[in-house]
């Protein structure tokens, strides 16, 4: 019997099995965060859209959803930036070059960066929220002339918590691109700004009606940034947030990642502010 077409049930089952990826680099970003570069042991890389995530697995420990922080134009290299906040992320952060991790995906709806073409792009990140936004900025930078002004507005707890220092410098060197950083608290030696990322939004110059804003950070930060952006005149439909909930399956079957009607792993994680504003106003939803 010819078997050139995979049985759909087998294909669906296989899609949920982790594939082996070898760690080719483990770069320390901060005291609790590393960036892993991974290459598939078998087959092709994972073609992905900026803003998507994978279920990343440490064999025998477990799997967790992690945003892809790499360049969408280089699908052969799977890049994840991981903060050590639990058992699985600790094992992932400790992975050494040559180790094999499991990954399945990519899953979810991404930023839809191309929707910003011809207009301005405002990227607002809080903490590790810069990880999925890095993929979006890399996509913009790769086709820089297709976009208007670009702002990367980044808030972190302290200067020691800043991610992607080299990238921030490179992006700042792009034409008509502003990179602004602010920290919650700082030593006296910090030459930069201290305060909330909303201050950066307030100070940035962009053509609000023709702006696509991409926001990722703690939910309370995204609510304030969303309010600030819409106050500046950016339509709520053009403010996109990457939302986070507990995810166990990544494909909409386990029910964990619900935000009222949304299953964030398939309907999100990126959703526009106008689609989630009522939900974000309700405590413990």
């Amino acid at each position: 019997m010819p078997v050139d077409v995979a049985d759909p049930a087998t294909a669906a089952a296989d899609a949920l099995l982790p594939r082996p990826f070898r760690v080719v680099a483990n770069r320390r970003e901060t005291s609790d965060t590393v960036t892993l570069e991974l290459e598939p042991l078998d087959g092709d890389g994972l073609a992905f859209a900026a803003g998507q995530f994978t279920m990343l697995q440490a064999f025998g420990v477990g799997e967790v959803p992690i945003s892809i922080s790499g360049d969408p134009a280089r699908p052969g290299l799977l890049v994840h930036t991981i903060r050590d906040v639990g058992g699985v992320t600790r094992a992932l952060c400790a992975a050494e070059v040559g180790d094999v991790l499991g990954a399945r995906g990519p899953y979810g709806r991404g930023w839809g960066v191309s929707d910003a073409r011809g207009g301005d792009v405002v990227v607002v990140a809080g903490g590790i929220g810069l990880a999925p936004l890095r993929a979006a900025v890399l996509e913009v930078v790769r086709a820089r002339s297709g976009f208007g002004r670009v702002h990367v507005l980044y808030g972190a707890r302290t200067e020691d918590d800043l991610l992607f220092g080299d990238d921030l410098e490179e992006w700042a060197a792009e034409p008509d691109t502003e990179v602004a950083v602010i920290v919650d608290r700082a030593a006296t030696s910090w030459p930069g700004r201290v305060g909330l990322v909303t201050e950066l939004v307030r100070a940035a110059a962009f053509d609000a009606p023709r702006t696509l804003a991409l926001v990722c950070g703690p939910e309370v930060m995204m609510r304030f940034v969303g309010a600030e952006l819409t106050a500046r005149g950016v339509p709520a439909s053009q403010v996109r947030l990457s939302l986070e909930r507990n995810m166990r399956c990544g494909v909409g079957l386990c029910g964990h990642c619900q935000l009222r009607e949304y299953l964030l792993c398939v309907d999100g994680p990126v959703l526009s502010l106008d689609a989630v504003r009522p939900q974000l106003g309700i405590r413990e939803l």
Binding site: G126, A131, R157, L196, V220, M221, E244, P278, R283
Partner: peptide
């Protein structure tokens, strides 16, 4: 019925988490 726009509580923004 809750009003469509629930006032957002004025908690400070913690910038560290998320992602």
């Amino acid at each position: 019925p809750t009003a469509e726009q629930t006032p957002i509580e004025q908690t400070p923004i913690e910038q560290g988490g998320g992602g």
